[in-house]
């Protein structure tokens, strides 16, 4: 019984949605909270593409952490594979998080988290 449950719970790979993982870098005035950042990203997406567009993008924030005494931060986002340019535009439109000025750029795009976070040689 347990084995059938497991089979039903996990979507077969052929049916899974194709996605992209984006490694991004935030340059900020002061340390920013992960939750504030995510809220700002969603605001930007809603403002640019509306509710329907936002649902198609299928955005998730996988990870975010600050570095260099809060002057910058890095994170990983997940989105639908054909919506990378839309996410880039939404990230570029963010000018402040919680009153602190920020600038975001995408460093790397990959089909797997491992690929996106692998160190460049």
């Amino acid at each position: 019984m347990k084995s059938t449950m497991n089979v039903l719970l996990y979507m077969p790979p052929s049916l899974r949605e194709r996605r992209r993982y984006l490694l991004f870098e935030v340059m900020c005035e002061q340390e920013i909270d992960k939750r504030d950042l995510l809220k700002e990203i969603w605001d930007s997406i809603y403002s640019l593409y509306g509710d329907v567009g936002a649902s198609e993008i299928k955005l998730r924030l996988i990870e975010y952490h600050n570095r260099e005494e809060g002057k910058s931060g890095v994170g990983v986002l997940k989105c639908a594979h054909d919506k990378v340019e839309e996410v880039r535009a939404s990230l570029a439109c963010i000018h402040s998080v919680n009153g602190a000025r920020v600038g975001i750029r995408v460093i790397k795009i990959s089909g797997t988290i491992k690929g996106a976070t692998r160190l460049r040689r």
Partner: peptide, 18 residues
Amino acid sequence: HSIYDLRAPHEMIALAAL
């Protein structure tokens, strides 16, 4: 007007697509 207003070239291209 500040370093936070600069955007990387690929971000500029994505904005131009708008």
